[in-house]
Amino acid sequence: MIEVNDIHKSFDDAHILKGITTSFQKGKTNLIIGQSGSGKTVFLKCLLGLFTPEEGTISYDGKIYNDLTDAEKRDLRQEMGMVFQGSALFDSMSVEGNVKFPLEMFTKQSKSEMQDRADFVLKRVNLVDAHHKFPSEISGGMQKRVAIARAIVMNPKYLFCDEPNSGLDPKTAIVIDNLIKEITEEYDITTIINTHDMNSVMEIGEKILFLKDGLKAWEGTNKEIFKTDNETVTDFVYSSDLFKKVRQMYIEERN
């Protein structure tokens, strides 16, 4: 579980995060939505410790980040996995090399143990015959899977995904969403996902945090987001006519 208490983050004179308080449960897929530029990535990078908020605290299962020593911070980092918006695979390494990389850097496992673990996670993300290909030789959807495999290879307690299905076709996007959800439940991970994809919101949004202009504008579940009367949320979520109609039908059906 991650608890965020009133964090602020600025760059020079631009105040990006203006005091966000929320919490993310273990074993659940937590989604962050909001317009482009609303501060989702900055917020996620604060959670990852890549950016330090000027004010406020973030705690990971009770451990407050700012109170940790450098060594403890490093240990905490190793409990985090991250899937970047553009996958961020190391393009000088093969798929297998990418997945093994954290193991080589941080564990004392033997070669065969690493191989087993890499085989296992690659199989878990349904990639069986791409071990020796390079990132530039595989499709965007496959790259995302490799990125997920690399993020979970160290058995993280916290998994962060920045728009894991942007640039993917709707079908592959759902496959990736479901994969993340399954992994989250299977390994009881606290998972936080930035997304633009309303499909994801409806499908896997066990908790949704809606950011607007650096503030929390709404939070709730995917069931609640259907019913909410909060206009900023409905404006954003049901911005397309199709979604507006779907919502109308849903409300009529209920009445």
Partner: peptide, 10 residues
Amino acid sequence: EQIDALDVMG
């Protein structure tokens, strides 16, 4: 973001 990826891993 490969450098960020390294940072995240520690």
